[in-house]
């Protein structure tokens, strides 16, 4: 299994190997050591490869991931899994701002907490957070699911479109046009599946509340001006 020590190897060499651009991809499993908060670790992967990162990463780890399975044994900086298409990313520690921003598919699991704007502008990605999420999470979320086992910060789901949010703990406040919605059978089933895929054992879907768009901002109305 090729291993890249980022204290001696450049990010460029790592990503080139993961993309198979320098020479064609032979291996399917990669290890990354000593990332020490490096940016753009394992971005733009497009093959069914496995990347294990040992240590904390900086901005945009796994950005635009398609098909790869990336595990960060550490914390992740801003924008982990941004615009992810498919595959999966697991962060064993905490994640900074913008986790899964604009993600269009795949599964992002954060076992610790995620900071503000988790799932901002999400477009189909599934995000499961073992801990809590910060303010403005799922802002303008268009599609996909955000599951939070802990609490949510201020303005959850502000200006939400059709993303679905499930929170087990407390929600500090809901954003404009975000409301609590009834958990029906199909939502239980979806949530159960997401929790299982994310390996979050012991979390009972019935402990969660569901939030979604009130759809009042879908058509402009001057009497909603306070919400704009």
């Amino acid at each position: 299994m090729p291993a890249f020590d980022l204290s001696t190897t450049s990010i460029r060499a790592l990503n080139e190997a993961l993309h198979g651009t320098g020479e064609p991809l032979k291996d399917r499993r990669f290890e990354v050591r000593n990332p020490r908060g490096s940016h753009a670790v394992a971005v733009g992967c497009r093959d069914q490869i496995t990347v294990a990162v040992h240590g904390p990463v900086g901005y945009y780890c796994g950005g635009m991931n398609a098909a790869a399975t990336i595990t960060v044994h550490g914390s992740a900086g801003p924008g982990v899994g941004e615009n992810m298409m498919s595959g999966s990313i697991v962060v064993e520690g905490d994640a900074s701002q913008y986790a899964g921003a604009t993600g269009r598919g795949g599964l992002l699991v954060i076992k610790g907490n995620a900071a503000s704007r988790c799932g901002i502008s999400m477009k189909g990605i599934d995000i499961v957070v073992g801990g809590s999420v910060g303010h403005m999470s799922a802002f303008m979320g268009q599609s996909g699911h955000l599951v939070v086992l802990g609490d949510a910060g201020d303005a959850l789901g502000d200006s939400l479109y059709e993303a679905q949010l499930f929170v087990r703990g407390k929600v500090k406040s809901l954003g404009a046009d975000c409301i609590e919605k009834e958990m029906r059978g199909k939502h239980h089933a979806t949530l159960e599946q997401l929790l299982s895929k994310a390996g979050m054992r012991g979390a009972d879907p019935s402990q969660f509340r569901r939030y979604g768009s009130a759809r009042k901002l879908y058509t402009f109305n001057i009497d909603n001006a306070d919400a704009y």
Binding site: I11, R12, H39, A40, Y60, P78, R117, F139
Partner: peptide, 23 residues
């Protein structure tokens, strides 16, 4: 932008885009 604000962050965003597209 949803995942960066200001030129210091933009520098990192550009790095990511260059890495994804192999410079």
């Amino acid at each position: 932008h949803p995942d960066w604000t200001g030129p210091d962050d933009l520098e990192i965003k550009i790095l990511e885009l260059r890495e994804i597209t192999d410079w």
